[in-house]
Design a protein around this nucleic acid. Structure first.
Ligand SMILES: [Mn+2]
Ligand SMILES: [Mn+2]
Ligand SMILES: [Zn+2]
Ligand SMILES: [Zn+2]
Lengths: 141, 141
DNA sequence: CGATTGTTTGGAATAGTTCCAATTCCAAGT
DNA sequence: ACTTGGAATTGGAACTATTCCAAACAATCG
């Protein structure tokens, strides 16, 4: 029988880091993949509880941190509001709609990324860039 | 006699917002202008205390918020670490050195800013963009 | 002046997250 | 199968940055 891909790549990534695949980790990850709306830890907690009613918030935080460290999930911060979690691994920026609070992924073409890195003077060696827009989005998707 | 410019523009800006110029606000602002190393509220508090030994941390937070609202100062967030404050009003990105924790201003040419805004699909109306680099900086300044 | 409104202050409260010690789970090794 | 050592989970306490609050203080106005 062929299990679905996501859970396999999860098991693989965890193994690569010497970590175990657990029901908690699997459900936390699947919840992120299922609804890609950049939920907070509390929101993930609420969603996971429908499948694992006894999971604790501490475990959700643990799992999310693990997923971030395995580079399966990105932690996204807006100002000082609660951290949000994003399973989109392509290079992308975030657009935060100030009215609705919704967060949108904005694909970043390599050319733009290269251009942005050009602004760094000699001596600055960037390992990552983060681009965040704030404004108003007309409801499309 | 001609007072120095900074405190004047501060008084002006505050007045524009219907706010008063106070010793606390002036010293908080002057401390930010004097050492532009993106201090946290606690660091500002420590610096201001040498001039106003009885100022409270709550007041520092109040003053900083006021300055941000008057658009004389930018609040800078890096992940979930304490908010830092920056009196540089030109469009610029931030470079966070992961080793030293230091934050550098990186000037953003209008052309790059325009290019970055190009990535937004129709329907996304951005009021601001924030660009943050993380990496290692060779000590220059 | 007295009244009004804005500002500061210290301390309490809040929120998001992390820490901790106790339990539970699991994978080998016997 | 049974032990056992490490990994993972759990509930609750602790922590930290920030905000809230009510009282004191200060400036401005009539
Ligand atoms: Mn918002
Ligand atoms: Mn750092
Ligand atoms: Zn995203
Ligand atoms: Zn800056």
């Amino acid at each position: 029988m062929s299990p679905h891909l996501a859970s396999d790549s999860l098991t693989q990534r965890l193994a690569d880091s010497g970590l175990r695949s657990t029901p908690q980790r699997e459900v936390v990850y699947s919840v992120l993949l299922r609804k890609r709306d950049h939920p907070t830890a509390e929101e993930v907690f609420a969603r996971v509880k429908t499948e694992l009613p006894t999971i604790s918030l501490a475990t959700v935080y643990n799992c999310l941190e693990t997923l971030v460290q395995c580079e399966l999930v990105r932690a996204v911060n807006f100002e000082r509001s609660p951290t949000r979690y994003c399973p989109n691994l392509r290079p992308h920026a975030h657009f935060h709609d100030e009215q609705t609070g919704r967060t949108y992924d904005i694909d970043l073409p390599p050319a733009v990324l290269a251009e942005v890195n050009q602004v760094l003077p000699a001596g600055f060696d960037a390992s990552s860039v983060e681009i965040t827009f704030r404004g108003q989005a007309r409801a499309t998707s």
